[in-house]
Amino acid sequence: MNIFRLSGDLSHLLAILLLLVKIWKTRSCAGISGKSQILFAIVYTTRYLDLFTSFVSVYNSFMKVVFLTASYGTLYLMFFKFKPTYDHNHDSFRILYLIIPSLVLSFIIVHVYTVMEILWTYSIYLEAVAIMPQLFMVSRTGEAETITSHYLFALGSYRALYILNWIYRYYTEDFLDMIVIIAGIVQTILYCDFFYLYITKVLKGKRLSLP
């Protein structure tokens, strides 16, 4: 554990909780892509299956349980409790275009051919692109609520902080996992456009709207 990894995890946690609180307080999931949330639920499920097979630390297990619970909680709020507020007309990204290629890639580029390892790798590839339906939705509606912008910024920052963590781990403990590093870089690049808008607009008190 180092400061970059901890900041990344906390940023990730903040993002997930922000989303839950936003939906709960406003009683609405308008502007949130249900498809991205479905992808994140798949990501956490396939990655954290190791809750049952390997123990790293109380911290790790606790966070995994929180991420899984919050992710399914978000799906419940979006697709059951506040379903009438879900803006499915603008959530039109075809997620099979992300699900299938990630699955194929996880069979081609993987460290070891075991079921658990392929599922873990799949979760890494899918996570890298899971935000695309949400970004597509923002670009279609041309705007995002400020709280949604904060959510996206926290979620994007998490993998960027993990990149610093991997650089740190490379020098301090010779840790080098190219699968997660390349996927993490791709994931972070996808947010760059949004980061720019966030810094130039939202941080200056303006609403995020596209020209």
Binding site: H12, V56, S57, K64, H111, N165
Partner: peptide
């Protein structure tokens, strides 16, 4: 060993 198969990150 260049990577750990026990994934210790989240």
């Amino acid at each position: 060993e260049s990577f750990k198969l026990q994934h210790d990150e989240l």
